[in-house]
Amino acid sequence: MSSILTHRLFWPVVMLLVLFAINLVAFPGFFVIEVKDGHLFGSLVDIVRNGAPTLIIAVGMTLVIATRGIDLSVGAICAISGAVACSILLGSPNPGSVGTVVTAVVVAVVISLVLGVWNGFLVAVFGVQPIIATLILMTAGRGVAMLITEGQILTVNSPPFKVIGSGFLFGIPVAVLIAALIFTAAAVLTRRTALGMLIESVGINPEASRQAGVRSRGLLFTVYTFSALCAAIAGLVLTSNQTAADANNTGLFIELDAILAVVIGGTSLAGGRYSLAGTLVGALVIQTLVTTVYTVGIPPIATMVFKAAVVTAVCLLQSPTTNAVIASWRKPIAARFRKATV
């Protein structure tokens, strides 16, 4: 019992369940998942599908944060990735062909990887503080996206491209499959190899890690590049979902949602131990929160306050101080119990 209570995912999971319960009361069909036109259809499906881009970015963000860093540029990279893909599709005589779409996706991802390497370069080689290094691309990146789209919203009509964000495979949204793939890949790559432990080590004590022979520079390059890759993919999902590249709005503030998901998931911004499972729960909490606003019918003016209240609650419940207080309430009871059994 106490091990469940002290588990770092306890409160985020409780919050998720509470949000589910609120939705169920407001909308009894909330948990209903039916098959419509050969694919899954229901509120829960929407939550995981709409939450997919945030989750994808949050996975990359988790690893960056574990190294004591932060990546603010992911939203801008989303916009660039979408803008590149859409401009290639629009420039092609045959935007509907799978080949064109594959080209567009590959080019968008490669350009984003270059941007990730740039971030890694600033942080790992020049030792620029991550928040500053990625701030550069966060602001300049939108400008780059604007140049690519020439300030217009680029609408594309390409059925294969649309599949990425709105399509279904075996009845499951493709966006969810992509997110699951990235999540699993990140988990396997970091936990089945030594990458995860080394990332944590660099995040906890960079100098000790260096003296132990850990190649922290290479690790930093890797996590920032991976984060950019995640952002590129999330940008493609977002762009495909709205069938248009919108340099101004695609991925706007998604870096903050991703950071929040990581923090709700129990990974400290001070770096070190991270939890991808926590990030998953965090991303789901954030997306469910959005849906709750709609189903409960919270007036748009009060939406921000509502979200802030929930997030504050989660963060307070997770704080070490709160947990210490809760532990001190429990202790007398446990002590009495112990005496009784001895």
Binding site: A26, F27, G29, G42, S43, D46, N50, I153, L238, N241, Q242, T243, A244, D246, N249, T250, V290, T291, V293, Y294, T295, G297, P300, T303
Partner: peptide
Amino acid sequence: QTGDFTRAGGKQVAEALLKS
């Protein structure tokens, strides 16, 4: 509900509201 004048916002809000 607000969709923030964006396509993605409109889609997401409409999805949820159509169900409820």
